[in-house]
Design a protein around this nucleic acid. Structure first.
Lengths: 356, 356
DNA sequence: TGGTCGATAGCAAACGTTTGCCAAAAATCG
DNA sequence: CGATTTTTGGCAAACGTTTGCTATCGACCA
């Protein structure tokens, strides 16, 4: 079939490097070098080869190359399974940002979901140990581990994003959760608020710890007792962050002495909470100030527009990729195992001084 | 940092099939067959091999296998670049659903973004022609094509999802856009509405054509002139669907004779439109009924809760994967080039009879 | 008992690259 | 102009699997 060149049409199955070599009248190795190493081959020869390659529509076979050089060019992103919580709103942006940066570095992005079952763990480990991927960005707090194989000692460079996992020795890219929440709480205190309602995500989770910690710090700094804040939520079995807000509204209704300000750990839960709270006859921000976390675009169009702490996902994605590619490039830089990208507080009408 | 750890880690690079063979005292080929073909090797030998494999923590090298058998086990999903429009809200669900189905079939999911530049097109084509991927699910209306290479004749099985591309010969999984919009418009007419405001996504886009068509069909069926509906939006240069709604609210303000019902082609634009319209002093649904498309969870918590036509993303994802895997399995079934999954109308408080 | 057949296991050749090493050619130098 | 260095191109050996063939070994049958 490829003995003669007059069988022009059938390049659908792909031309090989050998075909290019033949057409250009050089050896295969020369083609390889012409396409990869700059300077290693004569400019004239290179031109001839490039022309031949283009004419044949040649595309190098990624698996053959990967096998030979012993490395793939695929990065895997590990998403927390169905338990997206508030993160769901920003996942598309995260993906887009990461993918864009990766492509510029010549890498591809593969998705892996880490559910709470062994299947998905095993699957991720197969990817890691089977040489399919070259590095990983993880958005979950748990490292897959089963049958003695663990992602931690797969030899794979890993960067954690959103969650700080520097304790586990992972480079982590996070935002200044604690500080941001502390500042916004302080601002609420300054406005005159003294009783707070805190809407938790998964309890004990890094985000929860940091953000709740931020609230407490602000209270302490203002000389307020930590009983000034009521915790709600923190359960693990919700599909959406929305469910948390709904539940929290019920909790709120039960309280004898109503808080005047709400701090939510994700936009989703804030939105559903506000919706329910308004139905109960309260008004935002007159009866209750609300601020949440994530900076989802939809917050701007809530009623009233929600104040939110924006996670700089784009920047975080870029940073995570940069760290990962550095690690791959062997540039051992244990300089900072935690990279903090500052969040931005977006103040909108959901915040006001308390009524009385 | 980690230099102190001596030379503890020896399985860093992973055990090979040869190692397993040696430990089990058999030939490499036997190991290969034991791990893959059932029945081709003695049960006792197989047990020995499995034990050895487990002991060594052996994971087969995916690239070597891929190279040898000439096929990868990676499916690529082609997402429309930064132009997510309303789709953004449902992307995480789409991804999750598709990934889940793929994994069950032994495949992996790779992300590709199709922007409006040549770079991204070229990148996707490299993936397709470089043997990296085995099939594609596309959520964009444009097939990448550059330098004579086109995704259309890459030989790759492709399934289109959300958008009907059966005209281009692609298996397509869509929802019944036209019918759903027709029905909901008819319902609005039944309630007494006579003047409509239609919020378009990208003009000429499949969704736009179908959904607007649905509106017109309903009008015609009710004997109303097609001037009964005012089109707004349809521009391509928005980052978010939200921007469209904002712009549309301005358009709306200009109208001499106000429509009494709004049909939006995505939840995002409906949400921002409602937000602006309320700020202008109108009330939903008293002054204006609103219904949109997508079924984002957030609609339930809008003020008022938004009626929306839910896209059955999970089902669509499953169907798309099924079709793709069938096509890969050579089960040439050109039976139905278009698969329609019925949407579900979720009626909420944003709809009522017109005031007067 | 000799011949045949099934079931197992092994050898070695792919798959499409990259790259170490060597040879030829060209360029530089003394 | 010969000797030395620098470019340039080719050969062939990897990379870790899968798989077509072949070889071995019993078992079964006549």
């Amino acid at each position: 079939m490829n003995k003669n060149k007059d069988v022009v049409s059938e390049d659908q199955s792909g031309a090989l490097m050998a075909d290019v070599a033949r057409l250009a009248g050089v050896a295969i190795s020369t083609v390889s070098r012409a396409l990869a190493n700059p300077g290693r081959v004569n400019e004239k020869t290179r031109a001839k080869i490039n022309a031949a390659a283009k004419q044949l529509g040649y595309t190098p076979n990624a698996m053959a190359r990967g096998l030979r050089v012993g490395k793939s060019n695929i990065i895997m992103i590990i998403l927390p399974g169905s338990l997206y919580y508030g993160v769901s709103q920003i996942i598309p942006q995260v993906l887009q940002s990461i993918n864009k940066s990766l492509i510029q570095g010549g890498y591809n992005l593969m998705i892996a979901n880490l559910d709470r079952d062994e299947i998905s763990e095993r699957h991720i480990l197969d990817l890691a140990f089977g040489g399919s991927v070259r590095g990983a960005i993880i958005l979950s707090s748990k490292l897959p581990e089963v049958d003695g194989r663990s992602l931690a000692n797969s030899g794979l460079p890993i960067v954690s994003m959103l969650l700080d996992m520097s304790d586990a020795g992972l480079q982590s890219v996070v935002t200044n959760d604690r500080e941001a929440v502390r500042d916004v709480t302080a601002e609420l205190i300054r406005l005159g608020h003294r009783r707070f309602f805190y809407l938790a995500g998964p309890e004990g989770n890094y985000h929860d710890v940091e953000r709740y910690g931020g609230v407490l710090e602000a209270l302490e700094a203002a000389g307020l007792p930590k009983e000034s804040v009521h915790r709600s939520g923190g359960r693990l079995d919700y599909q959406h962050g929305f469910d948390i807000g709904v539940q929290a509204a019920d909790d709120f209704a039960e309280l004898a002495e109503k808080p005047t300000a709400v701090i939510a750990t994700s936009d989703d839960m804030a939105i559903s909470f506000v919706s329910r709270i308004k139905r109960a006859g309260l008004s935002i921000p007159d009866d209750l100030s609300v601020v949440s976390f994530d900076g989802s675009p939809v917050c701007e169009f809530s009623a009233p527009p929600l104040s939110t702490i924006e996670q700089p996902v784009e920047e975080m994605g870029r940073a995570a990729v940069e760290l990962l590619l550095d690690a791959i490039g062997q540039k051992q830089n244990p300089v900072s195992v935690r990279t903090i990208i500052r969040s931005k507080l977006i103040l909108r009408e959901s915040i006001a001084p308390p009524k009385s």
